[in-house]
């Protein structure tokens, strides 16, 4: 499974959304992505990529697109593999 597939799957499994829902998805934009859903999502990324995210990065992770940027720039997750 590629890093992008892991990334997308975390959203899809946690929030019961489909591929077409992912672009533009934002924190608190849907019921499931509230504070509890956010914690679950972050825990899944930490487990999937073997990283430990800082509190600041977790709080800055406010959209599907921004999350990719944070994971790439701060944790070296390559989504182009």
């Amino acid at each position: 499974m590629t890093n992008l597939e892991k990334y997308d799957n975390a959203f899809k499994l946690n929030f019961k959304v489909s591929d077409e829902d992912l672009p533009g998805l934002v924190y608190q934009g849907i019921f499931e992505w509230d504070s509890v859903g956010h914690m679950d999502l972050m825990a899944d990324f930490e487990a999937a990529y073997g990283i430990q995210m800082s509190t600041k990065d977790v709080l800055d992770f406010t959209s599907y697109e921004k999350g990719k940027k944070i994971l790439t720039e701060r944790y070296g997750v390559n989504f182009d593999e």
Partner: peptide, 12 residues
């Protein structure tokens, strides 16, 4: 045990 997201739980 959720300690991986403990700080975030406290924040929320």
């Amino acid at each position: 045990n959720l300690s991986s997201i403990g700080d975030i739980l406290i924040y929320f």
